[in-house]
Amino acid sequence: MSLHLVFNTAGYEACLKRKLSDDPIILLGDGVYCATQLEGGNIHALEIDAQVRGMSLAQSKAKPIDYDAFVALTELHSPVVSWAE
């Protein structure tokens, strides 16, 4: 199962169209700005990148993760696909 790294909001749109429905997503960098308008589940967000930008993940469907959890997700999934526009 693929893991999708989403680096910005346009990348999120491109990814959503082309991912299998169960594939997990990690939002990072400007991708965390998508955290308030998510569709579907199994979405994670790099907490430090949200904090940097003043984004709270409290009301978001995205699960906050740190780099150790990020690594663990890459261990579980292949390929790891990066999306940025």
Binding site: L5, E75, S82
Partner: peptide, 9 residues
């Protein structure tokens, strides 16, 4: 490698 991870601009 077992994994390839790309960090976009």
């Amino acid at each position: 490698a077992d994994r390839y991870v790309e960090f976009s601009a």
